[in-house]
Nucleic acid binder design. Structure first.
Lengths: 141, 141
DNA sequence: TAATTTAATTCGTAGTGCGAACTGTTGTCA
DNA sequence: TGACAACAGTTCGCACTACGAATTAAATTA
């Protein structure tokens, strides 16, 4: 039992590395770092405040400032002063940024689905539901 | 179907982030970066050549040099000249390094298993076998 | 109005990761 | 054997990541 559990953890760690590698390769193909691509994807639904983005990406505010700076310099994102609170600003995708975000998301999805699709349908569904449940339970962190 | 597949990829990406975060927190508790901890774990079974370590960690040789330098400076690892090939060197854990590697591996395992253990037994087994199969098929990359 | 809290930035520091250029060492083959 | 290609690691310069402490300015609260 103990041995099996050790393998469980190793399997999750290896899976995480695999996903990360896919993400990194796709990002690189678009001239982005994984962090930049991740931020663009997170911004796709709509503008987000720095503070909220910082929480979503698990980054200190000071780290986020630089990340947004670099992506803004590439013209993929812009800061818009918040109307209601003049301290704050909303980060939003530019047209180019939206394209890049869409492309990255699509390619990452395609490559990950390709991996999962090789499993028999039943096992695939169980895998997904298991992962979802883990995320749900750990979501509050 | 398409929507479900998009969610599949998102779930994997989120799972990867979760695993990464656990790994990063545990590493930090031991005064290490995730990369350093990962290297120590990879070295636990025994000494490894730079070139092979570079392949295992998916790093360029030049990146690995610095990583090993920093961990060696902390006294967790040492370079030993290879007897058979005077160009090469074996990287091996020191006593301190073995302790750190063991502790990190144990804590990461415990925390990941805690997540998975909340699932019903049957679903847990299917999840694991699915992950293993994905890794097996993607392993050649 | 004064004091506190909040949003974001700046600055310094340590670490990561790449590619190109370089130093030795080993192997090859003419 | 002697030139030369292939290989193991390192060095260097660069861009990026991430943190925490200190700072500025705006909003809130007392």
């Amino acid at each position: 039992m103990a041995d099996q559990e050790i393998e469980t953890a190793d399997a999750l760690v290896q899976l995480a590395h695999l996903v990360q590698r896919v993400f990194a390769e796709v990002s690189r193909d678009h001239g982005l770092t994984p962090q930049q691509a991740q931020m663009l994807c997170r911004l796709h639904p709509g503008p987000v405040r720095m503070a909220e983005l910082s929480r979503a990406l698990h980054l200190e505010k000071s780290s986020l400032t630089g990340l947004v700076d670099r992506v803004e310099a590439r013209g993929l994102v812009s800061r818009r002063r918040d109307a209601g609170d003049r301290r704050a600003c909303q980060v939003e995708l530019t047209a180019d940024g939206a394209l890049a975000a869409g492309a990255c998301h699509m390619e990452v999805s395609a490559r990950l689905e390709a991996l999962v699709d090789e499993l028999p349908t039943g096992r695939r569904a169980t895998l997904l539901s298991g992962v979802s449940e883990i995320l749900r339970r750990a979501g509050g962190d």
